[in-house]
């Protein structure tokens, strides 16, 4: 019963937060609603017993990605009215896509096709079951090539992003921090012994 109450609480907040993302006027509020919906969905994952995924969702999305998002949105002067202009024009298309998505999800879960993994409720694991260990074991044995491939693709993306933004401007004055850090007292201060003045 407790699980049910928790699930519906988190799910309701999640749905409202997701609506808030697309309906709020202030882009910063939208980002914050997105953060809220991430934390709620991580709570749902915790209820399912997937503690690794839940915590990583918070760690990666809430703790890192959304902070950068917030950063950018706060710095940019986003004009919400301008972005809202096409709302009515794109509404039918958006609704159609949403409808297809809902039907698909309903088809998989609601109609309970015999033989599909959703046709019955999967059995829960005991409390001492560590899904971190299981995930690690699968990720680094069976799927190790796909995993490495994903890592390489991400690395290429990072390199590409850095090369795109790197510009060399001539005549730029830069600080050479390694020189500044390695400076000694002798380079900067000279102690002089001054003879006292006497009449």
């Amino acid at each position: 019963m407790i699980n049910g109450i928790l699930f519906y609480t988190f799910a309701t907040v999640l749905v409202f937060a997701a609506l808030g993302v697309i309906s709020s006027r202030n882009p910063v509020h939208s980002v914050l609603f997105l953060v809220l919906s991430f934390t709620q969905s991580s709570a749902l994952w915790l209820l399912l017993g997937a503690e690794f995924l839940a915590i990583v969702l918070v760690l990666v999305y809430v703790g890192a990605v959304m902070v950068l998002f917030l950063f950018v949105v706060m710095m940019l002067d986003v004009n919400a009215e301008q972005m809202r202009e096409g709302f009515t024009r794109y509404l039918p298309l958006g609704l159609a896509v949403a409808f297809v998505l809902v039907v698909e999800i309903g088809y998989v879960i609601g109609f309970k096709i015999p033989g599909s993994p959703f046709s019955s409720v999967p059995e829960g694991y005991p409390a001492d079951y560590s899904n971190i260990k299981e995930l690690g074991a699968v990720l680094y044995t069976e799927h190790v090539y796909a995993f490495e491939l994903a890592a390489v693709i991400l690395l290429v993306a990072i390199v590409a992003a850095i090369t795109l933004t790197m510009r060399k401007r001539p005549g730029l004055k830069k600080q050479k921090i390694s020189e500044q850090v390695s400076v000694r007292r002798e380079d900067r201060v000279r102690l002089v012994k001054v003879e006292p003045f006497k009449e």
């Binding site: 953060v35 503690e51 690794f52 915590i55 990583v56 918070v58 760690l59 809430v62 703790g63 890192a64 902070v67 917030l70 950063f71 706060m74 560590s130 971190i132």
Partner: peptide
């Protein structure tokens, strides 16, 4: 919990929101 260290890491990473 099993993932105690991850939990700590996730929570401390959320502290930045208060500041921002």
């Amino acid at each position: 919990i099993n993932a105690g260290l991850l939990y700590v890491l996730a929570l401390t990473s959320m502290g930045v929101y208060g500041v921002i």
